[in-house]
């Protein structure tokens, strides 16, 4: 796919279908690997599908195209969500995707720009992606490039202090091309965020740091699309979409269930999951 001259060309129902296909890829690849993070992949995938389906400018045949928009997946454990969309967009093959976490695979456990075409950031250690995105946005401004920078973080992730260093610096440097998405799925590794260390009103906190904020239902594809357009159109200050999501969305036994943060479905569970995602 060549999306160098991106025009919004997928309908809302087509985006929903794209996200559904990605959900199936996600549970299948994690099952095949016997490990991985389904919960945070399924919570993020509607937004990622909308971004790649209608917003980002990229060229799967030329992944290093310097004026491509950047998508920086800071919550790198949700790598299956990224691999599923990269497969759908033609960056990687189905074989690549299904070799997730295997020795020598281009699909490493956590997203890694050194290994995978179409990946713009090496994640795996939380709290670093917004800083990296800020660096990309500053470089773009110095080059008078029009490229947009999108960063996705998890809500547990923003417990890291570095995230707030970056949030403060992004406001100070007025980087309007920097767009943040917070996947507010309310669950982190050990338990619910409110149990581990509640992050509170994330939108209000970012507003107080000088960001323009919109709060949405991260699974309502119309709201997601509108928020992406709104964020993209604001170029005078950094913008954040706080997406309220459900961890494990789409698979009943994974939904809102901390035990599926980082656990693969077994054979029976995969069967049920694929039935629910048909």
């Amino acid at each position: 796919m060549n999306s160098a001259d991106r025009a919004s060309d997928m309908t809302t129902s087509q985006l929903r279908e794209l996200a559904l296909r990605c959900r199936r890829h996600i549970v299948k690849m994690i099952h095949a690997a016997g490990a991985g993070h389904p919960g945070g992949s399924l919570s993020a995938i509607d937004i990622i599908a909308a971004l790649y389906g209608n917003q980002l400018r990229f060229d799967a045949n030329n992944p290093g195209w310097e004026d491509r928009d950047r998508f920086i997946m800071s919550k790198g454990h949700a790598s299956p969500a990224v691999y599923s969309i990269l497969f759908e967009m033609g960056f990687i093959t189905e074989e690549d995707m299904m070799s997730f976490r295997k020795l020598g695979s281009v699909c490493q456990g956590h997203v890694d720009m050194k290994w995978t075409n179409g990946v713009d950031f090496s994640a795996g250690s939380l709290g670093m992606g917004l800083s990296f995105g800020l660096g990309c946005a500053l470089a773009a401004r110095m080059d008078s490039s029009n490229r947009d920078i999108w960063v996705m973080v998890g809500d547990g992730e923003i417990q890291e202090g570095q995230f707030w260093e970056a949030a403060m610096a992004a406001d100070f440097h007025s980087v309007g091309k920097l767009n943040l998405i917070v996947d507010r799925n309310r669950i982190q590794n050990d338990d619910f965020v409110e149990v581990q260390m509640e992050v509170g009103d994330v939108g209000a906190k970012l507003s107080s740091f000088g960001w323009d904020v919109m709060e949405i239902d991260g699974h309502d594809m119309e709201q997601v699309s509108q928020a992406i357009q709104w964020s993209s159109s604001k170029t005078d200050s950094p913008t954040a979409i706080v997406a309220h999501t459900i961890k494990g969305k789409g698979v009943s036994f994974m939904e809102d269930n901390p035990s599926f943060h980082g656990k693969a479905p077994n054979n029976g569970e995969l069967e049920i999951a694929l039935e629910e995602l048909s």
Binding site: M128, S131, F132, L134, G135, C136, A139, Q162
Partner: peptide
């Protein structure tokens, strides 16, 4: 071409990484 990031070294290092990934 100078970026001041305040007293925040962790952020500075990743901002540098982002800039390096963008040809700087």
């Amino acid at each position: 071409r100078t970026v001041s990031l305040g007293i925040a070294e962790q952020n500075m290092i990743l901002v540098a990484a982002g800039m390096a990934s963008s040809g700087k």
